[in-house]
């Protein structure tokens, strides 16, 4: 596996995405390693995500794709390498050739700009859909409650759930909960959205609604990193498709090209199973 890491063809993923040419890098990941104890989960990841790009990560479970995503907003600390979002080093400050851990306050500040959607939704169970969306703008940004409420209703409308504003998460279907979770993340006006297998916990017939919201979000120009098993979504919406296995990037490029004509045997065998 580590052999394939060294021979990874760096397909210059973004060259394919014509509309993104000239766009600035929003996320830069360089030489990132992650150990969980003895377990070497990420084995040297290099990746960039341009402003407005939809970058889709696929791979078998245990390939490290979710871990990588969680490193981007510092929910996991990295063991080696660097991650920059908007040219700001995530989680650390480099001073005098040394890395200094950022204070929780500064980490929280960095996270404000990065929205995250989880596989298990993680809506606040004791708050209604509306309260879930209002929580961070009011509590973190100190936004006025009235303004936050109007904005939250707008966002719920945007994900097709304004009539569910007063419902508690337990009263919503999985697909509805996930759409509220997207609205909640958008309420902080992030420049980057991370999606960690957003449809994996959903009934098949509810997947479409969530993907549609994500597609609209992509069309609106949001920069997105999406860990998913939905190859169709990658083909239709993705600007870049990255296949990870064993903690390395095996192959990366234009989704349609990678899906139709993967260069690596490992990618082909994975795609043949999920397509």
């Amino acid at each position: 596996m580590s052999a394939s890491a060294q021979t990874t063809p760096n397909n210059q993923p973004l060259a394919a995405a014509s509309s993104l040419q000239g766009a600035k890098d929003l996320v830069r990941i360089e030489g990132v390693h992650k150990y969980f104890g003895e377990h070497h989960v990420l084995r040297g990841i290099d990746m960039t995500v341009k402003q407005g790009e939809v970058s889709v990560l696929i791979g078998p479970s245990g390939s490290g794709k979710s871990t990588l995503l969680r490193c981007v907003n510092h929910l996991e600390t990295i063991s080696a390498g660097r991650i920059w979002v908007k040219d700001e080093l995530i989680g650390y400050r480099e001073k005098g050739g040394k890395l200094h851990e950022l204070h929780v306050k500064e980490i929280a500040q960095q996270r404000r700009n990065i929205g995250m959607v989880f596989q298990r939704f993680n809506l606040f169970g004791h708050k209604t859909a509306l309260e879930n969306v209002m929580e961070a703008p009011v509590q973190v940004k100190g936004q006025d409650k009235g303004a936050a409420r109007r904005r939250a209703l707008e966002l719920l409308d945007r994900v097709g759930l304004s009539d569910r504003a007063k419902h508690y998460p337990a009263q919503l279907s999985g697909g509805q909960q996930q759409r509220v979770a997207i609205a909640r993340a958008l309420a902080m006006d992030p420049e980057l959205m991370l999606f960690d297998e957003p449809t994996s916990a959903l009934d098949p017939e509810l997947v479409g609604d969530v993907l549609n919201v994500m597609k609209d979000l992509a069309k609106s120009g949001m920069t997105m990193v999406v860990v998913t098993h939905e190859i169709g979504f990658a083909r239709e919406v993705g600007d870049t498709l990255t296949f990870m296995d064993g903690g390395v990037v095996v192959e990366s490029g234009n989704p349609r090209e990678v899906i139709a004509n993967a260069q690596q045997e490992r990618t082909r065998s994975f795609l043949s199973k999920v397509l």
């Binding site: 707008e154 097709g160 009539d163 609604d209 549609n212 919201v213 609209d216 609106s220 949001m222």
Partner: peptide
């Protein structure tokens, strides 16, 4: 339809799709 349930629920919003494009950056 662009997004799920909206248009089938009385009193609910019509489609959510267009709004997203209008308010998007």
């Amino acid at each position: 339809s662009d997004t799920g349930t909206g248009n089938t629920i009385p009193g609910g919003p019509t489609t959510a799709g267009p709004t997203i494009e209008e308010s998007g950056r």
